[in-house]
């Protein structure tokens, strides 16, 4: 009987171990595979055409303190207006060397509901002007786009300002 129990235990333990191994493997592969989609400015703009959705594109970086402060406002906005045709894109301008060190852990911690993208543009001169000719390059910066209508902001938004700007824009 004792042998039987032992045997049974052994049999029961084995699939559990396998299961744990599989879970662990999944966990680690998921960790390694934490994938951030990269984008160019042209690719961003392409998404906004042929759609009557209001796109709110926020440019930020983990090293930019006011950016990190205003990010929850964008999360709150898309949640509050989820029945609207609204799409918030959080576009990170973090440096390549900071993706593993800073960006990925930050995204994991924040668990953003909005889509997070990583900007891949080599020529700062060209892409800054593409975003807004009035943009100095200071972060944070945000554009509101719906079809042909585009408004650029070089500023930090409070949640109230964000809501008011959105309401104004969608009219």
């Amino acid at each position: 009987m004792a042998f039987c129990i032992l045997f049974e235990k052994k049999v029961i333990m084995k699939p559990k171990k396998v299961l744990y191994t599989i879970i662990l493997l999944f966990f680690f592969s998921a960790l390694n595979a934490q994938h951030i989609t990269t984008t160019t400015i042209d690719q961003l703009y392409k998404r906004t055409t042929k759609s009557d959705t209001t796109f709110i594109i926020n440019f930020w970086a983990t090293w930019c303190a006011p950016c990190v402060e205003e990010l929850p406002g964008f999360e709150k906005l898309s949640e509050a207006y989820k029945t609207d045709k609204i799409k918030v894109l959080l576009v990170s301008l973090d440096y390549t060397s900071q993706i593993e060190k800073a960006l990925k852990p930050f995204i994991k911690k924040q668990n953003f509901q909005n889509e997070v993208l990583l900007l891949r543009e080599d020529d700062q001169q060209a892409f800054i002007d593409k975003v807004g000719s009035s943009w100095s390059g200071a972060l944070p910066a945000t554009i509101f786009i719906r079809q042909d209508k585009k408004t650029f902001f070089e500023k930090t938004f409070t949640y109230v300002e964000l809501v008011n700007t959105y309401k104004n824009f969608k009219q």
């Binding site: 700062q124 001169q125 800054i128 390059g137 972060l139 944070p140 500023k155």
Partner: peptide, 17 residues
């Protein structure tokens, strides 16, 4: 030439903005 360039940087923390 160029006489003006742009770069990504931190916004200046201005009073009243």
């Amino acid at each position: 030439e160029p006489a003006v360039t742009k770069a990504i940087g931190c916004s200046i923390k201005r009073k009243g903005s």
